[in-house]
């Protein structure tokens, strides 16, 4: 159809014979210009709106700091995440740095004027060590890294699956939509815990189980939002125009409509990440998540809980990191939601 239109166009143009005057340049003084203001692109507006929001900026700062620490934290000191801090003393006896509370030797000396009176008097443990003698600073940031990786990997895959599913379901409508939505309804009524427990029957416990469990549940929310957006957009003129020009369904869905649904989907992603981190923590705590000696925020909290009566400081770092991650992503999500779809009164 598009080709026919293209062929028809020159036929009309041939009737008009251009004269030389059509191509003459005007002198600049003959042109009257209006005062022009640079127009603001959509994304620039979103950015401005986002950074005006104090909470969103706080969230962004929190997440950036935690991510930097998750990347560089474990290499900031010489201890590995599964290394037990130990050495042999002058009598050739093994000394293990078990259960040392957080300490900074020079600060302690500055404040009290005396040194620690044990074998580790000159070592720094910012978060202390756990009951086996592993440095908690390293473990905390390593755990945060594992949790963040799981969250990002699953959410990105879920975004792709959920988005495609929702867009396709909404676009075709009718019978296809009906069948696909019944499927979503059924999938949505299976509680996550049931999925996890069925998975645990035939999958080894560990990172894979957590990722698959999250993959199976998180795409549903994403697909619902994508479908709602599709239903809103698909009757608009530009879609009709594209179809008239002969674009195929795939082109219309993924090239024309997808870019216009990205806002709500990004917001949904921001809210899914804390859910993923939370779920991972909870599965690891229960014992079907990350396996030793690896650690995640969830296993660290579990370790801390097991030692809470003897080493109460051990549980604090992972709890604070978890809470800050949730807080940060929620703030960013709220900020994005407002920035991407500003209400008139907020402008």
């Amino acid at each position: 159809m598009a080709k026919k239109n293209m062929q028809a166009a020159p036929a009309v143009a041939a009737e008009y014979v251009p004269v030389a005057g059509d191509f003459e340049l005007l002198h600049s003084r003959d042109i009257q210009t209006d005062a022009n203001f640079a127009s603001q692109s959509y994304w620039k507006g979103v950015l401005i709106h986002f950074f005006k929001n104090k909470r969103a900026v706080v969230g962004l700062v929190i997440i950036t700091v935690i991510m930097l620490l998750a990347i560089f934290g474990p290499i900031m000191n010489s201890y590995g995440y599964k290394d037990i801090v130990q050495f042999r003393n002058e009598k050739n006896k093994r000394v293990v740095a078990k259960g040392i509370s957080p300490r900074i030797p020079w600060l302690h000396e500055l404040l009290t004027g005396e040194k620690y009176d044990d074998s580790f008097s000159d070592l720094t443990f910012l978060f202390g060590t756990d009951d086996l003698g592993r440095d908690l600073w390293t473990r905390t940031w390593y755990g945060a890294r594992v949790s963040l990786i799981i969250a990002f990997v699953t959410i990105i895959i879920d975004m792709i699956i959920g988005m495609s599913y929702g867009l396709i379901s909404g676009y075709f409508g009718g019978l296809a939509d009906n069948i696909m939505q019944r499927f979503v309804e059924i999938a949505n009524s299976v509680p996550r815990l049931v999925i996890v427990s069925v998975l645990a029957i035939f999958m080894p416990k560990g990172m894979g189980l957590v990722i698959v469990a999250l993959l199976l549940t998180e795409w549903i929310g994403m697909s619902k939002i994508a479908r709602a957006e599709m239903l809103k957009i698909k009757e608009q003129e530009y879609v009709l125009a594209s179809r008239t020009l002969g674009a195929g369904n795939g082109h219309i869905i993924f090239k024309e409509i997808l870019p216009n649904t990205i806002g709500p989907i990004i917001t949904q992603v921001m809210f899914s990440i804390p859910t993923a981190i939370f779920t991972e923590a909870f599965l690891s705590f229960v014992g079907v998540g990350i396996v030793l000696p690896q650690c995640s925020v969830g296993t660290l909290i579990e370790d801390g809980f097991n030692n809470i009566t003897t080493l109460p400081y051990q549980i604090l770092p992972p709890i604070i990191v978890l809470a800050l991650l949730m807080l940060g992503f929620n703030f960013i999500g709220d900020g994005l939601r407002e920035a991407l779809a500003p209400k008139l009164e907020d402008m």
């Binding site: 815990l193 049931v194 229960v286």
Partner: peptide, 24 residues
């Protein structure tokens, strides 16, 4: 009960099923 059923020595099919049905 669910945690015990899936983290025990053998995963208890009947408990997983019964609890899964209850949850759903």
């Amino acid at each position: 009960l669910m945690v015990d059923a899936i983290t025990g020595e053998g995963i208890d099919y009947n408990y997983v099923l019964a609890l899964g049905i209850l949850y759903s």
